[in-house]
Write a protein that binds this DNA or RNA. Structure first.
Lengths: 209, 209
DNA sequence: GCAGAAATTATTCAAGCGTATAATAACGGC
DNA sequence: GCCGTTATTATACGCTTGAATAATTTCTGC
């Protein structure tokens, strides 16, 4: 009857590990399969430790949701360069790995299905959604202005809604059934569609690495 | 200590009631809150009865998923009239009640998050997705032909993927944050975007009721 | 109107859940 | 090198879960 090996993790690292383990379990077993015991196994600790870092399981799950939102938006909001490049990169980033994969979708869907149930998650969700759409709206506005147009705020809003919808939908298709599409096919379709919607070409620039 | 009132339901009705109650509970409490006891309360029976109609809870949930898919696709696949009208109606139906509402999304998301976990649900999902996209592809092909074009199969496929993505994404936005949009704003945006993507106008026809 | 089948309720069960608490191991200051 | 603090393990508790089974009510064919 020997006691389990006792390993003290570096400052703040354990908290992050627990959140990662939570997401792994939700993606793999669903929200109802992500039990404290499963999460603890995944994180390499015992279940009781969770309550040393979080007030409750629900609080840990909420923080895990924040991490998901961050991983889905932070890369997209960090695009740089001229307006056209930024818009193009925004599209590419959202429709390729690591943003677009089946794990991301499973996590996203698990939390979305809880938004109506848990008010805390609803707040986190709305903040993430609005900041994402606002970022896209700014991208579209900058792009149109750079092309010599003077779009009204209303036009920008409508374009942002439409493009946001298109991107969400293609992201979804790619995550759900990536095997049905050829390599980067969805990116090409998105580019062509956005060009048609804005009535402007999105010049193909040389690949950067 | 009197026994609970004993009411025998008409042929086959109880089964449907149980599936409806299951969906109500999933929408309201999430998958993990949809317990046999909650479902039984909602259906006005006792929990034990479930196993008289279904082999297990999982089987009932799978049948409930079939019902969700059906409710999301059956109306859209039944559009009638000339190709242009069918395409327009298809768009309208998918972006307005009862297909587009927050309950539908909660249900859809709950099941999608389980697709990676439960192989049975994965099969049901893929069938529904493909039949939906094929229906849309046929709609697009008919429309283009009616407009005097001779699109290749590849063109139809790409258009269907793009429009499907747009519709999914706008459906999603509408379900998640319907309060952020004006009445039928999403339908208008969808119409305008599809026109731009196909390079053809979708004539506004007189409202039918 | 009775007998057997089917539908429904009631009760029980083992397993797993999140939480609480107590015991123990590692660390940092002095 | 000891001591208080904190991170971690271990264990126990009350509750809920899906499932199994037994008891009861209704229906149907004759």
């Amino acid at each position: 009857m020997s006691r389990r090996a006792f390993h003290r993790a570096p400052e703040g690292e354990r908290r992050q590990d627990l959140i990662e383990a939570t997401l792994d379990c939700i993606a793999e077993f669903g929200l109802k399969g992500a039990t404290l015991r499963q999460i603890a196994i995944r994180a390499g600790v015992t279940a009781g430790l969770v309550r040393h870092y979080f007030d409750s399981k629900d609080q840990m799950v909420a923080e895990a949701y924040r991490a998901v939102i961050a991983s889905l938006t932070e890369k997209a909001e960090a695009v740089q360069g001229d307006p056209e490049t930024r818009l193009r990169d925004f599209i590419v980033i959202n429709l390729t790995e690591p943003v677009a994969n089946s794990r991301s979708l499973s996590l996203w869907a698990a939390f979305i299905s809880q938004v109506r149930v848990d008010a805390t998650l609803a707040v986190i969700h709305r903040e993430g959604y609005l900041s994402f759409r606002n970022a896209l709206e700014a991208l579209v506005a900058d792009f149109l202005v750079a092309k010599g147009q003077t779009p009204t705020a209303e036009e920008c809003r409508r374009h942002a809604i439409a493009i946001n919808g298109l991107m969400d939908g293609l992201w979804l298709e790619g995550c759900l059934a990536g095997d049905l599409f050829r390599e980067s096919e969805l990116v090409t379709i998105a580019m062509t569609s956005v060009e048609a919607m804005l009535g402007l070409p999105l010049a193909t620039t040389a690949e950067k690495h």
